[in-house]
Each structure stands twice: as structure tokens, then as C-alpha cells.
Amino acid sequence: MKKRLDYDVIMDLIKPNSRVLDLGCGDGELLALLKDKKDCHGTGIEIDEKAIYECMDKEVTVLQGDIDSSLQDYSDKRFDYVILNESVQQILNPETVIMESLRVGKRVIVGIPNFCHTSSRIQVALFGKVPITKWLPYKWYNTPNLRFLSLKDFRQFCQDKGITIEKERFLRTTGEISLWPNLLAHHGVFLLKKE
């Protein structure tokens, strides 16, 4: 299996023995890692039936459902962390989901692809085409992404909503970077908090 740098970063942000909710948990790999390596108690929300079998094989708790409607049943600050990794850009109401996540979670970890990476900017500016990159390989007609944002856009959103960014980490294929992330990073991972 391909090593997921974003998982390493998220693992690093999460304290041992935490209660974690992973929204859009996919095959449950991250939850399984958190269970094995950090003794976390995790729950995943996932819509895809096939992915749910894989979660079950990995012995993690998983609920089939839409991210958009999955948070209302949880009480305030139920989880130590709510994870929205690579899912914010695919949900219908990201604003509501992020605010709800901050309600049910003491902290929220958001991992997003950077739609304004240099290679994307070049394609737009020079060729006048919507960018297709190794990290965002979709065409306009088959992309699962509903929202297109940059790391800068996300920071702006947090500022507007009074959300504190406690930590931010930026990724390229080769590893983590800290310089000019909005130009050079493919992914950003943010640790958020709201009192």
C-alpha cells in the first residue's frame, strides 16, 4: 500500500487515547492506524458500501451515511477530534459541516487539496484550461469535487468564522514544506478549535 503522508501528519496531531470521528473515512485505514498506534477509539462515517466492508475487515466502527446529515445526533464536544480529510471539497454544505464538527469535536482536523498550486495556476494562466494534475486528476465532467479552494481561501474562511487555527501543516509529494504553501503545497492539514 502506498504510504499516505497526510495520515502521518494527522497521526502526529492526535494525542493517544482520543475519541475520534472520521467523516468520510473511506476504507478505514486511518481509523485502524489510530486504533493500533495511538489506542484511539474511533468511529467512521462513510457512504460507499464497498468501503464499509473494508472498514469492518479492519475492525473499526463504521456507520453508513451522508456526512451532511451525520452529526446532528452527537452531543457537544463528544469527540476529542473530528477529522475531515479529503472530504470537505466533496460535501454539499461544508460550512455547516465544519461548524457542526466544531460543535461535536473539541478539535477538528481538516485536510484539503490546494486547488491553487503552481502547476494548476500555470494551466489556467498559460493554457486557459481548468487544471488537471496528478493530485487532482479529474475532468470537469467527472470530478467528485464540488468545492474548489486554496489553502489561503481556507485560512480566510477560518478567520471569518472565528475559528482558531492551532496548527497547520503543508505537504508536497516529497514531504512536508513550510515555505509558500499556497504556491508549492498540494495539501494542507489544519488543526482547528472554536470555543
Binding site: 458500501e49 463504521v62 456507520l63
Partner: peptide
């Protein structure tokens, strides 16, 4: 969920109606 009970849930895609409980053995077995 509200009660903080550890619960996993899946709706299996099936055409067999209520009979699926006794028919869809492969997915349930997994």
C-alpha cells in the same frame, strides 16, 4: 449514536426484499 453506544451500520444493496436476510449470505458473512 445519541446514547454514545458503539454502533456500526450498513444498508446492503439488494433486490431480494425482506428475504435478503436469508439470501444475501456472502455480504453478511463478511
Amino acid at each position: 449514536k445519541t446514547n454514545d453506544v458503539d454502533v456500526s451500520y450498513l444498508e446492503i444493496e439488494s433486490n431480494y426484499g425482506h428475504d435478503a436476510f436469508l439470501v444475501e449470505t456472502e455480504s453478511q458473512a463478511r
